[in-house]
């Protein structure tokens, strides 16, 4: 059983610890430090995120998306054909992102996350997964002035992300994850979504996963089991109905159990976590399970996120001891 995260890790600690990245960005914006210096601090904070995930006891980590402004901008601003608009609320959270505006054909020019991935692998004691925002979510959260439909735009994003995934694969990535929360808000478009997924992973031979959060999969389950990913992650915090869905049809892929609330500071107990894993994973082989928070961790203060991860890892070990 694998203890892991979904994507982001909080970028700065609380006072009195110094908020190095925040201070560095302020200084960079004022022209007080160079591009080189800010990249160095991003690297150091990334190392810190990798180290803290390992210390918490996770088996599989991410680079914490320390360099990402948000889940859209970091990818969108490095693709051709896109400019960035004002701030918009990200789903129903209290976080805001810059809305990508599609002004022309989207083209992939060069790897966006490959150097980040390589850096993380070099500096992590634990295996690292590569994480990308999926084409449907990117399309849904963009303003389209070029393609004329969400479907056409998503297809263009899928083409670009396929190039990125291939570059990650060439760089040695062993697991590439795509986050697609938006499809849970637009389930009627699932058929189109399934087509997108096929072009997204075309030519990808390493393991891939799809994470669906901020809701449940009712209405698209068990269809999601036909999607071309080896692992599918579900949100059992905001998607309370997912538990019943697992009973309705056997889960035939690796299962991502998002069971720690990534959007509330209330701490789950280790026993509670272990029990939750045992009841949800009943009937599945232990090595088919990835356990994680329900979404990225940037909605929480860092210290709370750390404590949640420690308990998550302990809960996984406890559940494992019983299941095996």
């Amino acid at each position: 059983m694998i203890a892991t995260v979904v994507s982001s890790y909080p970028k700065i600690p609380n006072r009195p610890s110094p908020a190095r990245l925040r201070n560095a960005i302020n200084r960079f914006d004022r022209g007080a430090i160079t591009e080189e210096e800010i990249r160095r601090i991003e690297d150091e904070v990334t190392e810190e995120a990798l180290q803290q995930q390992a210390e918490a006891g996770l088996d599989l980590v991410t680079d914490g998306q320390i360099r990402w402004e948000d889940e859209q901008t970091y990818l969108a601003r490095q693709l051709n054909g896109i400019s960035l608009n004002g701030l918009t609320r990200w789903f129903d959270t209290n976080m805001y992102y810059r809305q990508p505006v599609i002004e022309g054909a989207i083209t992939w020019q060069k790897p966006i996350t490959v150097d980040d991935y390589r850096f993380a692998v070099e500096h992590s004691e634990k295996p690292v997964k590569a994480v990308l925002t999926g084409p449907y979510t990117l399309a849904r959260l963009s303003v389209d002035q070029h393609y004329g439909s969400v479907g056409a735009l998503a297809k263009a994003y899928a083409g670009a992300l396929n190039r990125e995934a291939k570059a990650l694969q060439e760089a040695g990535a062993t697991l590439i994850q795509f986050n697609e929360p938006a499809i849970l808000q637009h389930k009627r478009e699932f058929e189109q979504f399934a087509g997108l997924c096929r072009s997204l992973v075309d030519g990808i031979t390493v393991e891939t996963s799809l994470y669906l959060y901020f809701g449940d999969a009712e209405g698209i389950y068990p269809q999601i089991l036909d999607l071309p990913f080896q692992l599918i992650g579900l949100d059992f915090v905001m998607g309370a109905k997912n538990e019943a869905l697992l009973q309705s049809a056997p889960f035939t892929k690796k299962l991502g159990l998002g069971i720690i609330d990534a959007r509330n500071t209330k701490l789950e107990s280790v026993d509670e976590i272990a029990e939750r894993i045992r009841s949800l994973a009943a009937g599945l082989a232990s090595d088919q399970i990835h356990v994680s928070p329900s979404a990225g961790l940037e909605f929480l203060p860092r210290e709370v996120a750390q404590e949640k991860l420690r308990r998550l890892a302990q809960g996984v070990r406890q559940a494992e001891a019983v299941l095996v």
């Binding site: 909080p10 860092r302 709370v304």
Partner: peptide, 17 residues
């Protein structure tokens, strides 16, 4: 008041608990 949480870009606030 809880710890610092990011709201966007380089903006953070103490979200109450």
């Amino acid at each position: 008041l809880g710890g610092l949480v990011r709201s966007y870009g380089n903006r953070y606030y103490h979200k109450p608990i």
